[in-house]
Amino acid sequence: EVTIKANLIFANGSTQTAEFKGTFEKATSEAYAYADTLKKDNGEYTVDVADKGYTLNIKFAG
């Protein structure tokens, strides 16, 4: 089991951190699915992958 950390960075400057656990593939998939649910209210997003994929910096356009 691994932990994927998602740093969520919103257009208004606020930030939030979420963690997803499971296999690497499952946790990564859940992180992207979570970002997709936030897209409606926060706009499109870009992802900067860090720490060999264990950290995702997800920035929303607003």
Rank of each mutant, 00 (worst) to 15 (best):
E1R: 03
E1T: 06
E1I: 06
V2K: 05
V2E: 14
V2L: 07
T3P: 04
T3W: 06
T3D: 04
T3C: 04
I4L: 07
I4V: 12
I4Y: 01
K5S: 09
K5H: 13
K5M: 15
K5P: 01
A6G: 04
A6W: 01
A6C: 04
N7W: 08
N7D: 04
L8T: 03
L8D: 00
L8W: 04
I9V: 15
I9S: 11
F10K: 04
F10W: 11
F10N: 03
A11I: 11
A11F: 11
A11R: 10
A11T: 12
A11N: 10
N12I: 08
N12R: 07
N12Q: 07
N12L: 06
N12V: 05
G13T: 08
G13R: 09
S14W: 14
S14A: 14
S14P: 10
S14V: 13
S14F: 13
T15R: 11
T15W: 14
Q16C: 05
Q16T: 14
T17I: 14
T17N: 11
T17D: 08
A18V: 14
E19D: 12
E19C: 05
E19R: 08
F20Y: 09
F20A: 01
F20M: 03
F20S: 01
K21C: 05
K21F: 15
K21M: 12
K21A: 12
G22S: 05
G22E: 03
G22R: 01
G22M: 02
T23P: 11
T23V: 14
T23I: 11
T23L: 08
T23C: 05
F24K: 07
F24P: 05
F24S: 04
F24W: 15
F24N: 03
F24C: 04
E25I: 06
E25W: 04
E25T: 07
K26A: 15
K26D: 15
A27Q: 02
A27D: 00
A27S: 05
A27W: 01
A27G: 04
A27T: 03
A27L: 01
T28G: 03
T28D: 02
T28C: 04
T28P: 01
T28Q: 10
T28I: 12
T28E: 06
S29C: 05
S29Y: 09
S29A: 13
S29P: 02
E30V: 06
E30Q: 11
E30R: 06
E30A: 13
E30D: 14
E30H: 10
E30L: 10
E30T: 13
A31W: 02
A31H: 02
A31V: 11
Y32D: 01
Y32V: 07
Y32K: 07
A33D: 08
A33G: 09
Y34M: 09
A35F: 13
A35H: 00
A35L: 13
D36F: 03
D36R: 04
T37R: 11
T37Y: 09
L38R: 05
L38E: 03
L38N: 03
L38S: 02
D41A: 15
D41H: 13
D41S: 15
N42H: 15
N42Q: 09
N42W: 15
G43I: 03
E44R: 09
Y45E: 00
T46P: 00
T46V: 12
V47T: 10
V47H: 03
V47K: 02
V47D: 02
V47Y: 04
D48Y: 09
D48P: 01
V49G: 04
V49H: 08
V49I: 11
V49D: 04
A50R: 13
A50T: 07
D51G: 05
K52S: 15
K52T: 10
K52A: 15
G53E: 03
G53I: 02
G53S: 04
T55W: 06
T55E: 11
T55C: 04
T55P: 01
T55R: 05
T55Y: 06
L56Q: 01
L56K: 01
N57I: 15
N57L: 12
N57Q: 08
I58D: 00
I58R: 00
I58E: 00
I58Q: 00
I58H: 00
K59V: 11
K59G: 05
K59Q: 10
K59S: 09
K59D: 04
F60A: 00
A61T: 15
A61Y: 14
A61D: 09
A61I: 08
A61F: 10
G62L: 07
G62F: 07
G62Q: 09
G62Y: 09
G62D: 10
